[in-house]
Write a protein that binds this DNA or RNA. Structure first.
Lengths: 216, 216
DNA sequence: TATAAAATACGCCATTTAGCTAATTTGACA
DNA sequence: TGTCAAATTAGCTAAATGGCGTATTTTATA
């Protein structure tokens, strides 16, 4: 039984989609609908026992792409299908960047919608015909995004950077100590300070943050 | 009547594919087969009244990707479907760069093959499940040409992949358990199995390896 | 429907990690 | 030469992790 939630501001369309889902009562269970991105997220916080979310792109307050970003960040296990009338490259590109797994048009029939949901649950990436083609075009000619890398300063000392680098290589404290010819206690202290500066609480987060901000 | 040509060095496989095509005598007309890229191009020069070509990737003399480049250059009206047993990102990426419109696995059944041909004629981009997903990953994270990506298969299950993904986000066992609605013990067991399969012994190594092989 | 694979779950135990406090040493530099 | 930040070391404690064994339930599929 696949648990589904929907974000769609237009009530008529929402009803239509929910009705399509109801064609498959054996396999699909519709749980709730948000009337915009924010409302949807609030509801998802309360009940995140969801397998697949269907996100409209054009919504007031918070659009589907913003919502998609947050959902894929906070609930990475949830599969996301963008549901839209638009099939332009920019939206497709941004949706994919935001972490969407599928991208299908609103006017697809119940069967297609159902098959897309099954496909996404099986690890696939359902896309309406035409969408896939545009995704391919994007692959051939990637849109150049002027990425805004936040140049936050964490003020790591030279030694701390060394430790962080070794940490990111997968060495444990003892090994780092050996490599830097210092005591494990010192390594621990450095790591403690690194965590403090990066505002994280474990190795993986530190490494992720370091990578994101190109510290290592 | 859609006119089709095939490039495939293995006679048995070629026969098998041609037989699949013969399931739809009303719609498909098989015209010729080349035994390698060069042979195929020679034949195509003589008869370029073709709608769709099916290209094997691994072929002697000239491989499918090379052939694809030349065909999409010289005969832009011809649709190209790469037909392969490989589904690794490098081949997918290069095929798309070379101008392929579709990318499907050799072991797909006649119906899927037929539908793919119809889809490509309608301007779509047929891809086997899994291929599309990898194409999406490529869009999110374009390949750096230089790096060699080994195509080791670690055979992680779907659940294991989910756990690995969450692990890579920095969640601890308890959090992963909550997000997947399973017990922390189960998460631990999954992680144990992941480590076994990836041949690693801690989180950081697992994440590194996963990243290197684009498992997440 | 029989079987295999995957997913689920616990317990025991050793190791590693993380947070806190405290103290000493070193090097730069004003 | 005195100050200050950085680097160094250690002990205490709790939490998280990893390895190994065992066992049941679910799912997929031959």
């Amino acid at each position: 039984m696949i648990k589904i939630a929907l974000a769609e501001d237009n009530s008529l369309l929402a009803t239509s989609i929910i009705e399509k889902l109801s064609f498959f009562p054996e396999d699909l269970k519709f749980k709730f609908r948000g009337i915009n991105g924010q409302d949807f997220l609030d509801k998802l916080e309360k009940d995140s026992n969801i397998d697949v979310v269907l996100l409209d792109i054009q919504m007031p307050v918070m659009n589907g792409i913003e919502a998609c970003k947050i959902i894929s960040e906070k609930f990475p296990h949830i599969k996301i299908i963008m549901l839209t009338v638009l099939d332009d490259e920019v939206h497709i590109f941004h949706s994919i960047q935001a972490g969407a797994n599928g991208y299908i048009l609103k006017d697809e029939n119940p069967k297609i919608l159902f098959e897309s949901i099954i496909e996404i649950m099986n690890g696939g990436a359902p896309m309406s015909a035409g969408i896939a083609l545009k995704a391919l075009k994007l692959l051939r000619n990637p849109i150049e995004e002027k990425e805004e890398i936040s140049i936050e300063k964490f003020d790591l000392s030279i030694r701390e950077t060394e430790v962080l680098t070794l940490l990111s290589k997968g060495f444990d404290y003892k090994n780092i100590a050996e490599r830097l010819f210092i005591s494990p206690s010192t390594v621990r202290k450095h790591i403690e300070n690194i965590y403090q500066k990066l505002q994280v609480h474990n190795k993986v987060e530190a490494i992720q943050k370091a990578g994101k901000h190109r510290l290592v």
